[in-house]
Design a protein around this nucleic acid. Sequence first.
DNA 1: ACATAACCGAGACGGTACGTCAGGTCTTATC
DNA 2: GATAAGACCTGACGTACCGTCTCGGTTATGT
Lengths: 189, 189, 189, 189
Amino acid sequence: MIRRVHTGRRRNEAAREAILQAAADLLAAGSGDVAVSAIAKSAGVGKQTIYRWWPSKRAVLIEAMASRGQQLVSVSETGVFAADLKSFLTATFAAARQNRALLLGVLSEALTDPSTMSQFCAFAASRRQALQSLLDRACQRGEITKPSALIVDQIFGTLWYRLIFHHAPLNSAAASKLSHAIVDQLTPD
Amino acid sequence: MIRRVHTGRRRNEAAREAILQAAADLLAAGSGDVAVSAIAKSAGVGKQTIYRWWPSKRAVLIEAMASRGQQLVSVSETGVFAADLKSFLTATFAAARQNRALLLGVLSEALTDPSTMSQFCAFAASRRQALQSLLDRACQRGEITKPSALIVDQIFGTLWYRLIFHHAPLNSAAASKLSHAIVDQLTPD
Amino acid sequence: MIRRVHTGRRRNEAAREAILQAAADLLAAGSGDVAVSAIAKSAGVGKQTIYRWWPSKRAVLIEAMASRGQQLVSVSETGVFAADLKSFLTATFAAARQNRALLLGVLSEALTDPSTMSQFCAFAASRRQALQSLLDRACQRGEITKPSALIVDQIFGTLWYRLIFHHAPLNSAAASKLSHAIVDQLTPD
Amino acid sequence: MIRRVHTGRRRNEAAREAILQAAADLLAAGSGDVAVSAIAKSAGVGKQTIYRWWPSKRAVLIEAMASRGQQLVSVSETGVFAADLKSFLTATFAAARQNRALLLGVLSEALTDPSTMSQFCAFAASRRQALQSLLDRACQRGEITKPSALIVDQIFGTLWYRLIFHHAPLNSAAASKLSHAIVDQLTPD
DNA sequence: ACATAACCGAGACGGTACGTCAGGTCTTATC
DNA sequence: GATAAGACCTGACGTACCGTCTCGGTTATGT
């Protein structure tokens, strides 16, 4: 509950960030159900300020998640497919693991609201695209055979499946193992 | 809203089934959020009859889903791994596709309620187990190398990932393709 | 916040009375603005229970006032006009004085809501009618000349004017004095 | 929504009047509840301009009413009590009738705000005083007996009672009739 | 046969969160 | 330095749904 300066007739960027931060925090601390009034209180903001800028609670959560997703995975490529894939998976798994409650909270909201779901799908698509272009480059270099769309879904599917059911770890060992399996699948022999 | 006969002091099995059916239908027709009173009304039942037999709304949904899951996948095995896996995946994908809204509805509930989640995990584990024993038998026959736990997660991960994000089909072609990829991965050469 | 027994599927009369009582009390204690949630809390009732039975806050207040108005003025008549009028006014003034905040609270609500106003007018009309019939009987007995409608308005006008502006008392002395003035006005000589 | 010229650093009198006018109009057009933002918009003014000059919404309304009250009743006296009272009442009734919504709107605000009420009482007292001095002069001339305070309250009480409940007209016939009744009451025989 | 027990449909209840609305404060940009 | 604009915090509004409770009624069971 920080004192924040008014910015008059222009949108208060600090309030916007406080809201997203509070939303992310509450989801992460995650009892799995976040009340708008709780976000508002924890951001030191009136509820109306939330509804002025977002159409619904879900929209806030989506944006909170997306802005986190931005920060996480920026992998420098070496040009060697096996190494690049491994580091991509390791970074992605780590980020997912650390933001598990946030991701699942948003998934939960998306499942009950079509427009949230469409934003959520866009987020997922952008992550798939990141992986896809990594694969495409390796393919152009001739390192691997042309990968099918299934490959990408196997990878992110494994990620989300473990996120949801939590029966097996998403650590770097898993990333490494999955990476090997994928490389094998894509290497002609 | 069917007239149903009273069964007096014994539990009315017809009511029980009407409740599960209504729950499944509403979830499937699903805007993604089902009210207990809606289930009750659509089943022609008092709310108390629901709460008499289930501890909460989620429990009803879980059971509705599980009872659907029962019906779906009973695959006769031929003893040839590639064929068995393909028919398992085809049947599983088809069942998931047909019950998409139901499965996602329950997932949604599970994400906001720990005890529902634990039942949901048990359900998922039983599905994994079904696949695992198929793999184990093929391994014992020497058809494939010992499969890692990752394989199972890649398969069900792909299933759930496509269920959720809906960006690619879960038809028999996908099942077939995925089956081939897995067989390749598990065949020594 | 009294524990109250449930009455099952039938309206809980105790809750109804608790609501009216709480509404009357809060108005009387009167900061002049009563929140529905405050009524609910003070009656030990959910807000929905209020909105189930009354269309709006005002309706509750009106009913609270009317039910108080019922109890107050039941004057036995002696058949002597001067005495009867005096006791009517004394009782009416006393009741108004004691329920001042309640009456003004409802007036306030009525002024911002047409349907509340129409109920409020009905209440006022019933009070006028009570006085009018007292006058009519005296007229039939030949005690007084036929009274104009203005007489009634002078009396209740004085009452409400003093209720609102509070610049002069509404005690029995005032009632007595007003009574004399009216008797003089209606007595031929 | 009139275009108005800026007056730079001096108070813009036109804005002040536009605000009072808008307030009066909205009250008069009156659904009985006037929003500050509505006044501001209809006056073509920022909300802050209102709050810069008045402490609250009620204060604006009070002032709007008082400035209307000023214009209305300036009766030249003839020195004959019956005639003077009658013209006073006729003018007062007419003014009240024409500004009914405004008066009731302010009454409504006054009932929920003590400081508004005190200003409102002052307004009422000034009106009573105007009538009182008319009576006093007639008394000094020996035309009437010394009038009690009740007389004044009967008159303004009738006025407000009919304003509020609207069950009987406030036209010149009523003024005339009431005037006669009062004269009778104050004339020794 | 008749009292009792357990079930059933209905729906009111106390509560929590929702998304909206208005009041009064604040800052910016304009004149 | 006063103004129009409008974002801000606050708190009440009326709605939806949760899970609990009681009612009046029905039918199997036990004596």
